[in-house]
Design a binder for these strands. Sequence first.
DNA 1: ACCGTCTGACGAACAGTGTTCGTCACGATC
DNA 2: GATCGTGACGAACACTGTTCGTCAGACGGT
Lengths: 222, 222
Amino acid sequence: MSAEPVSRRARPAKAPLSRAVIVRTGLRVLDREGLDALTMRRVAQVLDTGAASLYVYVKNRDDLLAAMLDEALGRVRFPAEGSWQERLQVLVANSIDAMSRHEGLALVALGGIPTGLNALLVMDRMLALLKEGGLDDTTAAWAVDLLYLHITVAGAEQAAYNTKKMNAADHIAEVRKLYADLPADRYPLLTSMGDALFSAGDRDRWAIQVLVNGILNTPADR
Amino acid sequence: MSAEPVSRRARPAKAPLSRAVIVRTGLRVLDREGLDALTMRRVAQVLDTGAASLYVYVKNRDDLLAAMLDEALGRVRFPAEGSWQERLQVLVANSIDAMSRHEGLALVALGGIPTGLNALLVMDRMLALLKEGGLDDTTAAWAVDLLYLHITVAGAEQAAYNTKKMNAADHIAEVRKLYADLPADRYPLLTSMGDALFSAGDRDRWAIQVLVNGILNTPADR
DNA sequence: ACCGTCTGACGAACAGTGTTCGTCACGATC
DNA sequence: GATCGTGACGAACACTGTTCGTCAGACGGT
């Protein structure tokens, strides 16, 4: 019944497994087939091996996801020009962008102090910029916390927006109708402010500005 | 082989199934046994029925989670006293609190415009407070977006902090050591600012203040 | 050139998961 | 009293992450 063992040599030379290629393959699968398709078996299949083989280099699926997140964060570019505020805003925007390129990855970062080497590099640079802006240590530390939190959540939201949702315009129109059809006595503003609620504009850039302005005007008092 | 069918009447009168009791039972299971234990089978077991029965009232697991989230948000209290800024800050804090009471629930809200009736009520109240503060429609609309985003992510973080992590103090000490042991040339600030990074203080309240202050100082220009 | 040793690849299996289907008891309706 | 429709539910399906034991092949010492 069992076929004779196929020599590995019979197949075209196969690149050896390693943590790095597993992580990169994971990102490829995530980008092309979505988060649901990112199973250990699928990643192994792409690498032409069995799922069990991955566990030599990766502790478990969460470990793989965390490594993928840090790999993605490794591609964040650090701006070199402009005032410290401009550089901070661009750095935050770049980080959100890096996360939002991969569906669901940002969610991995939530609920855990960042420990990936590339995530920590982003944090260190943000701290440097805040110190350059003259903030005291405590405020800068709290600010980095808040900014990183915003990066993850904005990344998650953008990612959900970019991928998956077949037709964003249709979906928005649907929700808009839902808002308009709400009982006006219980939801007076949602029913009447439809135009503003769904207005276009660079909300992401605005949100970052809000954070930076707020940080500058709100010292951490303790 | 098959046992004789046990009449339902033989058992103590069983409360009839309904969407509401399923949602409430889901919350109970989530609170007492954690997110991993929140399976359709487990919820059904608590209700003394089979998993298939739940699907009459609930489209699928995500639908159940969304309903649980909105149920949790239904318990948010709307503050009645203080200036509009104070009321807004308390409302945001209360919402974060409501979400953080249930592990992992806040994550459900991410990546999707809120459509639950109670979530929309919170949004409407926030809009009312912002309009009371004299903001124009567009800024108020964008601000509500940002505030809701912060509520979800802060709720998720707090929830991860409250539950699960066996010993928070130990974990923090561990991460702190990790930061301190980083190469100082690549991570100059993380290695030197340990005291500030892990300083105590009411960061949650501070973050809300940052957002409100930032919103007041950053008009949405378009 | 041989022979152990050891690493890593991997098939099979385990214990679950969400979800669907077909059946069948029950309460209300004619 | 017969009929009907609703909802409860056992069983099954197609998956999942993870572990275990096996075993081929590379490496190092003699």
